[in-house]
Every structure is written in structure tokens, then in C-alpha cells.
Design a protein around this nucleic acid. Structure first.
Lengths: 217, 217
DNA sequence: ACTAATGTTTAGCTTTGCCTAAAATTATAA
DNA sequence: TTATAATTTTAGGCAAAGCTAAACATTAGT
């Protein structure tokens, strides 16, 4: 498995879950910042390797083999993210690019030990689930703050969109990964909420609430 | 800097220190498990990038720029080895291949934090010095094998007395300049040691150990 | 249903890093 | 010193993974 192949598989894996259908050439090209023709080339190659089913003009679908390979790349990526945040004290929004490189390191024993070293985590610092060695994914328990109802409690596990402005806002309100958020009240007509975040109580607009992932339980 | 370029620089760096002269095309080809013609190609490319000075038929020599780049790759390699042994409990002879991959991960901040996480180590698990961020390497001092304690590692750099019998003994045990020696155990009352020299493990008397210089660190 | 717009594939080219075979240079040895 | 051996370079190719331009399929609009 080359680096490029791993990246394609990973991206198809993500797109399949998002779109819940075959993945089109253009969708892939956009996500991978490449051209449709390059995608076609790679699809043919991955189809030859039985990683996916490719039908001309009809998009692709991962086989079991492909799914497993892709999930393993995702597993490695997310474990490294946990390492970077928990052990090297990176902030959770700085780790993606580095993990993007580390996910391609090839050693089963390394990942086994890393997993143990980190205490067999189930979720990465963004709240996304870490697939197990066999590619099974625990159902994500994260949802948007805006989905919560009065008196529900969530723990902040990530953001949906991370503009500097938004992150700065969260910073000012002292909301970060792990912050407990309690929904004190909710306005139906505009979706705004009164919340308690840590020690402080304040209002957040729908827009704010729609971009914050929390883990309920 | 591509992966291949980094590997060439690193290898030239090591060979320059070993041979104390320019590095020949064939020497490089052998070390890199490739063909002389491939080496020539890459030498021309690295010369264009001012990483080394290349004169046809005369071998190559790293420039300051090339030396610095190479030392940084070595730094990363050795820091990861420390990580693998100290944190993930790998044995020191299992880590090379993995570190060979990890050394190419590209993030200054990552290495800064890794270094701190490991307690700013000066030497890797094999006893080799870790270059600092500017490419400087701590000079290692030689001492007698008999001065080492359990689990210390030394590289054979010479003998104190060189009787034919002694040299023959070393020869039989396949100990020569550059042989890595790991002290597995030491008897207090007679100063004898159980050592690993290269692949073999055996006992050496105090007398033997008192006549062999090793470089620790 | 047919044409236009959109999406996808094919053909052919580029770069990187490797290869083999042949030519050129340097080293060695009689 | 000169021939032979060894080393190094050059020339010409190959596979991976990308690209552009052109051809081909599908979808959508009227």
C-alpha cells in the first residue's frame, strides 16, 4: 500500500459514510485536491487490488478489504492525535496535519503499543471514534450542542467549523475540550440557549451552538 | 526535501564521519542498496540544491547546509528511538526500522515537544549521540569496557594492550572497531561481565574488559 | 426527444527515482 | 607503460502519480 493509495482509501471511507452512497469521481477529486482524471487512474488501480468496486461513470464503493484497510489508517490517525494532545500537549486544533503524516507509519507492533500507552482510548481529541484493530467503529456519541434540550448535559469534544474567530470566542468563554456544558434553557424561535459552561452562565446564539460538538451519554 | 533526498543526505553524513573523506558513488550505492547510476543521478540533484559538492569521478562532500539537514534527520531518528524504547518499551534492537520511517515526519514543533517530553536526551538507546537543533553533536569519550555498568552500551574504539593473544581472542569473538557492546550483567567480586557483542552473548573476564576501549556517551 | 451542460474517462505528457547497458574515466598490475 | 580491471557516468527506459486537452456518457431543460 503506497501513501497515495492509503490517502484515497481513507477519503473514500469518510465520503461513503457522509454521503451514504457510492462516491463519485468529482467528489473525490474535490476532497483530495486533485483532478478527476487522476482519480479515475487511481480507482482503476484500487479496483485491480480488490479494494473497491469501480463501475465506469458510476462511482466507487469500498469492498470489505478496502474498508478494513481504510479504517486502519483512520485508527492510526486518531491514535496519533490522542498522543499529540495527551502526551505532547498540543492543542486539539493543531494536530491534524501532523497526524496526517504519522498515520502512514507502518508497524503493527507500534500501533499496538501506542494504543496501550494511551490507555486504549475510544475517541480522539475531536470526539471522533477510533476504529478498533478490526475496523469496527464505536457509534459516535458526539452531537451538536444545538441538538440538546433543556437540562441535558454535554462535554465539549470538538468544533464543526474552526475559524479563528470562533475559536477565539470559545477561548474567551473558557470553553475547551472537556468543558461540561449544561443547557439551562432554550428559545424555540431562534434556537438560542442559556447555558452553564464550567462556572459561568451565559447565552449562546444558534450559530454558536450549531458549531460545537458535545458528548452526551 | 523529499524522502529519498533525506535518506541520501543521512547516509552521506554517516559515511563521511566513518571514512573521514569524500564519499564515493559505490560506497553510497552499497549502503543504500541501490545502483551506482541512481546515486549519480541523486548526487547531481543534491549538488544543484547546494546540499553537497559533487565532482565527477571524485565523490561528494556535504556543504554546511547539507550537513545541517542531515544532522536534523539523524536527530529526529534518534529521538524517536528514545521514544520507542523509553515510552513504548521496545527493545533497543527492534526500533531502527520504525524510526527509519518516523524520521521523515515533518514538523519542527513536533520535534521540539518530543524532545521535551523525553527529557532532552543526549543519547539514543544504542548510545549514539543525538545532534542538537543546530546539528552539533556531543563528542563522545572513550573509556574502558570494565568501567561500564549493567545495561550500558559502548562501541569498541580500540585496545589498551595489543598482544597477539588478546587480538586473536577479540578476533575469535568477532569484536573489532565499531562493534557495539552491551553490558548485560556484571559480577562485583571478580569484575567479570556478561556482554552482548554484535549478535553473540558471552562472558568476559575483568582482564579482558580492562583492555578494551569503548565509546559510551 | 433532443440538445446543452455536466461529469467522467482516455490519451498523451511530466517528474521523481529507480533500472540496465554502454561509454568514459581512473586505478592497478605486469 | 600499457593493458586490464574497477569505478563512475551517460543514455535510454520504466512505474507511480500527477497534469491538460479531448473524447465520451449521463443528466437535465425545454
Amino acid at each position: 500500500m503506497t501513501l497515495a493509495e492509503e490517502n484515497y482509501l481513507k477519503t473514500i471511507f469518510h465520503l461513503e459514510r457522509k454521503l451514504k452512497s457510492e462516491v463519485s469521481t468529482n467528489a473525490l477529486a474535490e476532497r483530495m485536491q486533485t483532478r478527476a482524471s487522476s482519480v479515475t487512474d487511481m480507482m482503476q488501480k484500487l479496483a485491480d487490488k480488490k479494494m473497491l468496486v469501480y463501475k465506469k461513470y458510476k462511482g466507487v464503493q469500498l469492498t470489505e478489504k478496502g474498508k478494513k484497510a481504510a479504517a486502519y489508517v483512520v485508527r492510526k490517525h486518531r491514535l496519533w492525535e490522542v498522543f499529540l494532545v495527551d502526551k505532547l500537549n498540543f492543542h486539539w486544533d493543531e494536530v491534524h496535519e501532523i497526524a496526517e503524516q504519522m498515520e502512514h507509519i507502518n508497524s503493527v507492533e507500534l500501533i499496538k503499543r501506542l494504543d496501550a500507552f494511551l490507555g486504549h482510548p475510544d475517541f480522539d481529541p475531536h470526539g471522533d471514534p477510533i476504529p478498533d484493530k478490526d475496523g469496527n467503529i464505536k457509534k459516535a456519541e458526539k452531537r451538536l450542542l444545538s441538538e440538546l434540550i433543556k437540562n441535558q448535559i454535554g462535554i465539549c469534544v470538538g468544533v464543526k467549523e474552526s475559524s479563528p474567530e470562533y475559536l477565539q470566542y470559545l477561548d474567551k468563554k473558557k470553553i475547551s475540550i472537556g468543558t461540561k456544558i449544561n443547557v439551562l434553557g432554550k428559545e424555540f424561535f431562534d434556537g438560542s440557549m442559556m447555558i452553564q459552561a464550567g462556572r459561568d452562565q451565559f447565552f449562546v446564539s444558534k450559530q454558536i451552538a450549531e458549531n460545537l460538538y458535545v458528548q452526551t451519554n
